[in-house]
Lab assay of single mutants.
Amino acid sequence: ADFLSNDDYAVYVRENIQVGMMVRCCRAYEEVCEGDVGKVIKLDRDGLHDLNVQCDWQQKGGTYWVRYIHVELIGY
């Protein structure tokens, strides 16, 4: 899907992401590398560009918070 802005994409992720879902990092962020796959373990839905998504990352080996714009949804 094509999104006009980071805000549009962040809204899409916020409306669709669920705890337990698998996500792929589509934009490297601090300790999380692009392409790493993680399981969503906690969500904080306050802002669009806060650290909203806590995942247990496979490559990184452990949990880390990222923003909506850092992840793509790959289902369960």
Rank of each mutant, 00 (worst) to 15 (best):
L4G: 09
N6Y: 10
N52D: 00
N52T: 06
E15P: 03
I74M: 09
I17F: 01
K39S: 09
G38M: 01
V71Y: 00
C55I: 03
D56R: 12
D8Q: 12
V11I: 12
N6V: 13
D2A: 07
V13W: 02
L4R: 12
R14S: 08
Q58A: 07
R14M: 10
W65A: 11
L73M: 13
K60W: 04
R45E: 10
G61P: 09
G75F: 08
D46L: 13
D44V: 14
Q58H: 06
Y9R: 09
D50C: 08
C26T: 10
V19H: 03
V23I: 04
D46K: 15
L43K: 02
E31R: 12
F3P: 14
C55Q: 01
R45P: 10
T63C: 12
K60F: 12
D50M: 09
E15I: 00
D44F: 15
N6D: 13
V32N: 06
R27D: 09
N16I: 13
E34F: 08
D7P: 06
V19M: 03
V11P: 00
V66H: 07
K39V: 05
V32W: 00
E31A: 13
G38Y: 02
E72G: 03
I41C: 07
Y9N: 05
Q58L: 06
M22T: 13
V11W: 12
E31L: 09
N6T: 15
L43Q: 00
Y64S: 12
D50R: 12
W57S: 00
L48W: 04
G47M: 14
G20W: 04
D36I: 06
D8T: 11
N52A: 06
C55S: 01
F3L: 10
E72R: 07
H70Q: 09
Y9V: 04
W65C: 05
G35C: 02
N52Y: 14
I69L: 08
Q18C: 13
Y29R: 03
E34Q: 08
I17T: 01
L4T: 07
C55D: 03
G61V: 03
S5G: 12
R27T: 13
C26Q: 04
G35F: 03
I74V: 12
V11N: 14
V19Q: 01
V32F: 04
V37A: 05
D36L: 00
H49E: 08
L48Q: 13
R27A: 08
G47W: 04
V71A: 07
G61N: 04
N6K: 14
E15F: 02
E72L: 02
R27E: 11
I69E: 14
C25R: 00
T63V: 13
V13N: 02
Y68G: 08
K39A: 07
Y68E: 06
C55T: 11
G61L: 03
R45W: 12
W65P: 06
F3M: 15
S5Q: 07
Y68V: 05
W57R: 01
Y29T: 15
V23G: 01
D2H: 15
V13Q: 03
E15G: 08
G35R: 01
Y12T: 07
Q58K: 14
E31T: 13
L73H: 04
E31N: 12
R67D: 11
K42D: 02
D7T: 11
N16M: 09
G20N: 05
K42S: 11
E31S: 12
V71D: 02
V66K: 01
R45V: 07
V11H: 13
V23H: 02
G38S: 00
G20K: 02
E34D: 14
L51P: 06
V37G: 02
T63S: 13
G20S: 04
V71R: 02
C26I: 11
S5V: 13
V66G: 01
E30G: 14
C55V: 15
L51C: 05
R67S: 14
D36N: 04
L73E: 01
Y68A: 10
Y29L: 06
Y9F: 04
Y68P: 14
G38I: 02
V40I: 07
Y29P: 02
C25L: 02
Q59V: 09
D56C: 09
H70F: 02
I69K: 13
V66T: 12
E30Y: 04
Y29G: 06
Y9M: 05
G47E: 11
I17N: 04
V13T: 03
S5W: 05
V23D: 00
Y9K: 06
C33I: 09
V13P: 02
S5H: 15
D56A: 14
K42E: 12
C55G: 04
R45Y: 02
C33L: 07
D7K: 08
D44I: 04
I69Q: 07
F3S: 08
E30D: 06
L51M: 05
K42R: 10
V11Y: 14
N16K: 06
N16V: 05
C33P: 10
K39C: 05
D8R: 09
L73W: 00
G75V: 03
H49F: 12
E72C: 09
L43W: 01
E15M: 08
N6Q: 05
M21D: 06
E72A: 07
E30Q: 13
L48Y: 04
K60N: 11
E31D: 12
E31W: 07
R24D: 05
V13G: 04
I69D: 13
D44K: 14
K39G: 00
K42G: 13
L43G: 00
L73V: 07
L51G: 09
V11S: 13
I41W: 02
L48F: 08
R45A: 06
H49T: 12
Q18Y: 15
D2N: 14
G62C: 08
E30A: 10
V19G: 00
W65S: 09
N52G: 07
E72P: 00
E31G: 13
Q59L: 09
I74N: 12
D8K: 12
R24G: 02
K60T: 10
V40Y: 00
E30M: 12
Q18N: 10
R24W: 02
Y68R: 03
G38E: 00
C25A: 06
R24Q: 03
H49G: 14
C55H: 02
C33W: 06
V11K: 14
G62F: 15
